[in-house]
Design a protein around this nucleic acid. Sequence first.
DNA 1: TATGAATGAGGCTTCATTCAT
DNA 2: CATGAATGAAGCCTCATTCAT
Lengths: 195, 195, 195, 195
Amino acid sequence: MVFARNGLERGKIADIANEAGIGKGTVYEYFSSKEDIFIALVEGFFTEMFHDMDALLAMGETPVEKITSLIEYSFKFLEEYLDSEEGESWPIIMEIFSQAIRADASTEMHQAIIRGVRAGVAVFEPILQDGVKASILKPFDIDYFALVVFAALDGLALHYYLQRERFDIKELMITTREIFLNGMLTATGRKELQS
Amino acid sequence: MVFARNGLERGKIADIANEAGIGKGTVYEYFSSKEDIFIALVEGFFTEMFHDMDALLAMGETPVEKITSLIEYSFKFLEEYLDSEEGESWPIIMEIFSQAIRADASTEMHQAIIRGVRAGVAVFEPILQDGVKASILKPFDIDYFALVVFAALDGLALHYYLQRERFDIKELMITTREIFLNGMLTATGRKELQS
Amino acid sequence: MVFARNGLERGKIADIANEAGIGKGTVYEYFSSKEDIFIALVEGFFTEMFHDMDALLAMGETPVEKITSLIEYSFKFLEEYLDSEEGESWPIIMEIFSQAIRADASTEMHQAIIRGVRAGVAVFEPILQDGVKASILKPFDIDYFALVVFAALDGLALHYYLQRERFDIKELMITTREIFLNGMLTATGRKELQS
Amino acid sequence: MVFARNGLERGKIADIANEAGIGKGTVYEYFSSKEDIFIALVEGFFTEMFHDMDALLAMGETPVEKITSLIEYSFKFLEEYLDSEEGESWPIIMEIFSQAIRADASTEMHQAIIRGVRAGVAVFEPILQDGVKASILKPFDIDYFALVVFAALDGLALHYYLQRERFDIKELMITTREIFLNGMLTATGRKELQS
DNA sequence: TATGAATGAGGCTTCATTCAT
DNA sequence: CATGAATGAAGCCTCATTCAT
């Protein structure tokens, strides 16, 4: 994957065409610009991600099981990408965030990414809501809770990628699951908001 | 900050010079290439970050206080950047990670970034070690523990930045602190490594 | 011819493109760098030169006739270039030597030039060999002999070019032919090597 | 010598200053521009050359002795340059010719070089004149004769330099001397001007 | 529909020259 | 006198995009 390997700016249309086995000009039959290709990529990425997540969640029963599933899925997702021939395409997620940050908030690109990120966070919300209802979780603000989990998993993916020679993904997953699950289950609510 | 606003590739030397109030050629009196400027930036960024962290840690007493301090510092760091005139320069951290991922591992740039990241993780390690000694924390692998916390904070910074209109940083900090602190204190060790 | 007029360093790609009636970028469809263009030029120059020489030599009979032909050809070559619209492109030969001297011996450019020069000298060698066999020439070292003649003709071309207002090319050719031919035919061999 | 090593265009003022052990700005106390430095160099080069030649000629007696001396001197000059630490500065002669060819005839640079070249040819003329008077040489046009000899020696210097690994300078000198001296002494005059 | 040759805007970098000290 | 930091003009090269085939 050209953009993953080189970033949006350094990824050349010529390489993309080549990798796709088509001519350079043909690319413009399907996309109107380089940025357009990237946006399609972003959407494809998030679509695939949520599709997998949904399938996964359908299998869990209790909120705790579901949360556990999501954390485990995050690592499996990462692991599979890195193992497969598509491995090189993994860093696309960082490229997406990088572009989101750089791009003007008004651009189509920024919009597409924000849309994806929100959808990601949204996956967690109903699960957490169930947890609160079942009194498993304290009545924290659901959306903050979801953001923390989703964001933390992203950060972990990044740092694991950068230091994958030094860390074992399985053990990292266990540590993460421990901290997060325990953290969520014992967090005592927002009584300290005054600080 | 030119690179923060546009990324390494789109950040023009001309703009950097302009922002510094010097001529385009003058830039090359101090740096030998565009990449060289970026590396200096990376090093400056990490240096500043750790300088602040060290000062902060000196003030805490117990491991719990210190961990709390670090979590709070992460948000303060972020908040201050975003509030100040330097606000626009905050996204540099994402740009750094983005480049780390793209750059060949052999490049000076990659090296510099990895060095910074490791130093960041290393800040947490002695604190966690103390926690284990004091039997406050279970005997998890210290380095995995540290990575999780450091990485999670990075992910949070990113996502908060992207959705800063929708979230309140103070409340986000509280939620984060709750989850992490509780999670760390109640995590029950690696008994599940078999899974 | 841009390089002939200005030299390699001052010859701008933009001018080359312009002269060729194509866009600046199009140049890079055919050559990968400025130096690459120059190398192609060098090779074209020598190729053309030797092609003409070969045709010429086929027409002579005796060694003396052939040597005479070569000397005359050198001047004709020069004369034609200077008269034609290509006239301005003649100095390319000096540019070639100039670059040969400057360029590091390991460069492709240097190699290409040395190859050409040796080929030039080599044209003379079989002719001189025949002359020696026929006892017309004394048994001087053929390669030294060839170098002297080839080199001298190059020097003459240069100096004639610089002072072409003051000298008549026809008469210069006659003087040259006289001196060289007589010199070669009467040179008495290397008995003086002791000096 | 910076210009010899790199050519006029690639020779940097900074290097010249450095080699001279002075500051970059100081160069402009003595010369008004880069071209100005080069012109001074040209003049110094020719001055030195003719100074040596004059000394040499004073020692010869007969025209033949003098011509022999000049030919031998040319090689000695070359040899000494190449052997000495100044060796690297030899190619300056080719750089001079190269610039002469490129420069517009109206420039000061061109003028200076042409002046030098003419002076070089002029050294030969009185000697040849003596030879004609003494009936040793046929009544060829003196200036053409002189040009041929001077130019040929230049060409030899160039080619020897380029292939100095393959040729022995002493033997090259002998071959040259043989051909030229015999050629000059036996050339039968311009009766063939009709061709 | 598919192509890839042609294009030129744009950016990094070099370096002769200036000038305040 | 000597200096070298500062400068910006200038040039090589890249590459997204176009368009004739």
